[in-house]
């Protein structure tokens, strides 16, 4: 008797592609549905002016969400970004109104301050083993408190410095400068996450910290560094907001951290670490901005926007954990046992 050996066939490449990119494809689909829905429901929605307005409003969220994607990929979280934005916002306004330094140096100093704050929190998380949730919850309170204390709760006006105000109000070729900054940071984040050794370390640490350490990767340093990224990104966002409004306030960016985390999670990044894309985060941030803008254009109460945004986040996480795990397959559901 002869024995027949056959090789197992390769599965369809399209099915592989779909299951590999299910997260990004689903948020992309949802984003398109939102855009179409609001275009039909509100005539002012699909106009160049309004679209640029959405992008400008989404810019600070997107900048921080890119960094937050790195943090959440390491299975961490940074709840303090809103307070960091407020602190940078306030300190920048105080420094500029006091005329301590020329404005470009103030910008650099704020970026350095953001990095320092992030590194400080990252040290507690990575080297002292305190859960990121606790460290950054404390940071949320402490940093907002500093901002309030420094400003005594007042809004600090920024003097007329055309160079600095350009950061928030300027345009290059009709595109608002904050949009250019945020897109550039998103592109940079994409390249770093998927193409560099550092990005590989971030994913490996989030996927299996002990395996990364055993493979000789500096796992702790990597974890500390991602909080530095959110610190720097929060500084950028704080400067964008300060330059746009022409003032610094300790009450800036209240609830900002929730919008940022919502954008990242909506984009399919797993809270358990190891899995996430910047493209998904970009689509998540834009979806949240589009929903907020669209509902206002439909003359729906702004209070209702919060309810809708929260509901969408809940549904997104539900899909994320229930459907896109091992039991999900394209092309027909598996029978329940």
């Amino acid at each position: 008797m002869s024995v027949q050996y056959t090789e197992r066939g390769q599965g369809s490449a399209i099915a592989d592609f779909l299951s590999e990119h299910a997260q990004v494809l689903s948020i992309a689909g949802f984003f398109i549905v939102c855009v179409v829905f609001f275009s039909v429901m509100a005539s002012a929605f699909l106009t160049p002016v309004n679209l640029l307005n959405i992008l400008r409003q989404a810019a600070p969220i997107l900048v921080v969400a890119v960094a937050m994607t790195f943090v959440i990929i390491t299975a961490g979280i940074d709840l303090s970004v809103g307070s960091q934005v407020a602190l940078i916002n306030a300190v920048a306004a105080i420094a500029l109104s006091g005329g301590w330094l020329p404005w470009p140096f103030v910008v650099l100093a704020m970026l350095a301050l953001g990095a320092l704050i992030g590194l400080f929190q990252g040290w507690f998380v990575a080297y002292q083993g305190i859960p990121a949730f606790i460290v950054t919850l404390a940071g949320l309170s402490i940093l907002r408190g500093f901002a309030l204390y420094l400003t005594q709760g007042y809004s600090i006006p920024i003097p007329d410095l055309p160079g600095f105000l350009f950061i928030g109000r300027g345009q290059i070729g009709g595109i608002p400068f904050p949009v250019i900054v945020s897109v550039a940071i998103a592109v940079l984040g994409t390249v770093v996450l998927s193409r560099t050794v550092y990005g590989r370390r971030v994913v490996a640490t989030g996927s299996n910290t002990e395996a990364a350490r055993r493979a000789g990767m500096p796992a702790r340093g990597t974890i500390a560094s991602v909080y530095m990224l959110t610190g720097i990104a929060s500084a950028v966002a704080g400067l964008l907001i300060a330059a746009r409004l022409g003032s610094g306030s300790s009450n800036a960016a209240v609830g900002f951290e929730l919008q940022v985390i919502a954008a990242v999670v909506l984009g399919g990044t797993s809270l358990f670490g190891g899995r996430g894309t910047i493209l998904g985060t970009l689509l998540g941030a834009l979806t949240i901005a589009v929903i907020g803008n669209g509902l206002i254009l439909m003359h729906i109460s702004p209070f209702f926007t919060q309810i809708v945004t929260g509901t969408i986040i809940l549904i997104a996480i539900w899909l994320n954990t229930r459907i896109f795990t091992a039991n999900f397959r394209f092309g027909g559901k598996r029978r329940k046992g």
């Binding site: 994913v203 996927s207 190891g274």
Partner: peptide, 20 residues
Amino acid sequence: LSLCDHIDVMGNLFLGREVA
């Protein structure tokens, strides 16, 4: 095994000594 589940086969083979 100390593998990173979310990284592909070659990424795991070169974990910690990526060719760059």
